[in-house]
Design a protein around this nucleic acid. Sequence first.
DNA 1: TAGATTGTTAATCGATTAACAATC
DNA 2: TAGATTGTTAATCGATTAACAATC
Lengths: 211, 211
Amino acid sequence: MAGNDLPRLRRVVLERLMRYYRWLAESTPKKPLKNVTSGQIAEALDIDPTQVRKDFGAIGLQGMGRVGFEVWEVCRSIRHMLGFDHTYYGVLIGAGHLGRALMAYNGFARYGLQIVAAFDNDQHKVGGKAAGVPIKPMRTLKPFIRKHDIRLAILTTPAEVSQKVTDRLVSAGIRAIWNFSPTRLTVPPDVLVRNEHISLGLSQIAYHLKQ
Amino acid sequence: MAGNDLPRLRRVVLERLMRYYRWLAESTPKKPLKNVTSGQIAEALDIDPTQVRKDFGAIGLQGMGRVGFEVWEVCRSIRHMLGFDHTYYGVLIGAGHLGRALMAYNGFARYGLQIVAAFDNDQHKVGGKAAGVPIKPMRTLKPFIRKHDIRLAILTTPAEVSQKVTDRLVSAGIRAIWNFSPTRLTVPPDVLVRNEHISLGLSQIAYHLKQ
DNA sequence: TAGATTGTTAATCGATTAACAATC
DNA sequence: TAGATTGTTAATCGATTAACAATC
């Protein structure tokens, strides 16, 4: 496959690509543009136009002078680079309020993610469903991951148990962990951890309100 | 008040302060340290020790050679700088799954935040409670904010209505918006918006899993 | 004292922005 | 062609890390 010698994309770039994609592919119509310029995107998303062109260049996109970029081509390219055109399966650990909110959100499928099971230790939850996803007992976690080739685990467990659960996930062969519990996790270098530490936001909010 | 001439703290610094605070004040005992060195903190949180000293310096903390910093003093200072020792009141807009998860979390009070009401347009929800918090109709939003001197709004509305709701919040005099909806909000410069765009994380995860 | 740790200045690194020739 | 837009190199900015004298 040609063009696959592009350098590895950094986190900030990936996030901007996601923002471009959402704006181009998902924002409300009234402007079904065929072409778009870096300036238009920059204006809408409050990003420097040079940055937009650099990011597009980083995924091999070429624009045309005076015309800009083809919307369809940009979307296709981002979708491909970010892997939205694959389907990958995930499990969720900890079917509490946040876990249920994430399962109910139901907006991840369009980016390729399917949550196929949730795991919890609470006997009252086990056997039930949340947003159509079955809740299973923790002891069945490892065989389930192995059997169904699960790549991603979404972690919404209490902080105290997160590392222990993580160790089990890693030994079962998980490839990425989306961590919503407020703890730093230790994993082997080939496992990706994406931290979503919501309460860090409170530092900024409280500080601002204090002023 | 002396010492208030410290430069404004940046977002990354605030987040690190939050992490120091959680580790020092909230991590499980077994090591009730009286003093702590920048090296110990650095090791635990995977941060450069120089960075820790710089951050402490930025909030006016002084350590002692050979001894480090007094834990109690560090905690008190962070709590004060970040404003955790004030109580401030917040409302939540959009009592969906995520909104309910945030209200149920109940861990914000220790940082000074009290969620006193939720607002929603759904007649089935209005009048009820979620995690002990009353759910009120949207039309009562503005007077409520004014009457109770609400500073913060937590926004978990669908993306399409977020800007409209934001405009109402701003005109009611809100000071900060904690935005969980995947949209960029436009606000006057004195209103803080903290974005918590969870699905940006998917870009990193999908990209990693594709490799 | 000897040695570990702080506080601070300098060096490095990476990301963002500016400038501008090449292009359509 | 004239003019807007790209693609790329250089400049700037800010944050992180290294180095090291001062301190307890």
